[in-house]
């Protein structure tokens, strides 16, 4: 049986751990509120953007002259997986879930004989992916200096990806992030961002009958050429915001559990401590009594 001193030390160490996890939980809760608000505030833009993209894409029939971002390269040999993770750990299964989704996709693609590359956003995805696919990480976008994700960051990532897309012979780009459903539920998501997947525009068009004639200024092609990279930035921006909210939600839940577990552990240790203390007292009493009887 552990000594009283050892138990006492143990209890105080668990207590200080509990203080840390509790503080982290509260910080995550506060950050979650902010991240969630940011994600919600950004929703109208991406919704409008998706609407416009759908109506435009429905009007243009993909041909050899149409932009590559829309129609693709005509191949699907080389895949780039953009994996968005966080910079900090201690967020439960948040990062490993995203990485697992990406890894499954990569293994799937490799089994079909495709080439897979990784583009990492955030620090925590690097270690597991580098272990499994050591030579396939093309770039890691550093987000450690960013406190609140801004549109400029998303734009920088999007530009970088578009550049690699046009120069490195990449055919398909997938985006991995965790969609925020609630503080308890975050779903890892895989989304194909290049070429743009035809949205549910076809369904809308057939339902609405003849769409009103829209004037374009300048013409459709030029608008589309400007819109496509922007749409990409918006998609990435949304993914980053969702990710930020998911990270905080996941951390909050994980830290809540940790705090509760620490509490349970403290209770158990305290009981053990008291028992040991009582046993020691009883032992002392027995010693005194038997000593007195011997006299």
């Amino acid at each position: 049986m552990a000594s009283l001193k050892a138990l006492k030390n143990r209890i105080s160490s668990v207590k200080s751990t509990q203080k840390i996890t509790k503080a982290m939980k509260m910080v995550a809760a506060a950050k979650l509120r902010r991240a969630q608000m940011a994600a919600e505030a950004a929703r109208p833009y991406s919704e409008r953007m998706a609407g416009v993209m759908a109506s435009l894409a429905g009007k243009i029939t993909p041909g050899p002259q149409s932009p590559k971002l829309l129609a693709g390269t005509g191949n699907d040999q080389v895949h780039l997986l953009v994996v968005c993770t966080s910079d900090r750990g201690l967020a439960g299964g948040f990062n490993s879930n995203i990485v697992r989704a990406a890894r499954r996709k990569a293994e799937d693609l490799q089994r079909q004989g495709k080439t897979v590359y990784f583009y990492l956003v955030g620090r925590k995805g690097r270690a597991p992916i580098a272990r499994l696919f050591p030579r396939q990480i093309v770039h890691q976008y550093d987000t450690s200096g960013i406190r609140q994700v801004g549109f400029a960051d998303a734009q920088a990532i999007a530009n970088d990806i578009v550049e690699r897309y046009t120069t490195d012979g990449i055919d398909v780009v997938h985006l991995f992030y965790a969609r925020f459903r609630s503080a308890l539920v975050q779903e890892p998501m895989a989304q194909q961002i290049i070429p743009v997947q035809p949205a549910e525009s076809a369904a809308n068009d057939s339902g609405a009958g003849v769409p009103p004639a829209v004037e374009y200024e300048p013409d459709e092609e030029e608008i589309l050429a400007e819109l496509l990279p922007r749409n990409l930035s918006v998609q990435i921006f949304r993914a980053l915001l969702e990710n930020a909210a998911s990270e905080q939600g996941s951390r909050m839940t994980a830290m809540d559990n940790a705090t509760r577990n620490a509490g349970d552990m403290i209770n158990r240790l305290t009981i053990e401590y008291n028992r040991t203390r009582q046993a020691a007292i009883t032992k002392e009493l027995i010693e005194i009594i038997s000593g007195a009887e011997a006299l």
């Binding site: 416009v52 004037e215 374009y216 200024e217 030029e222």
Partner: peptide
């Protein structure tokens, strides 16, 4: 401020898309 010149929009304007 459209790329090809400013334009004013009143209620009931014809559908337009412009950068």
């Amino acid at each position: 401020p459209g790329t090809e010149g400013d334009f004013g929009v009143l209620a009931g304007h014809a559908p337009v898309m412009s950068t």
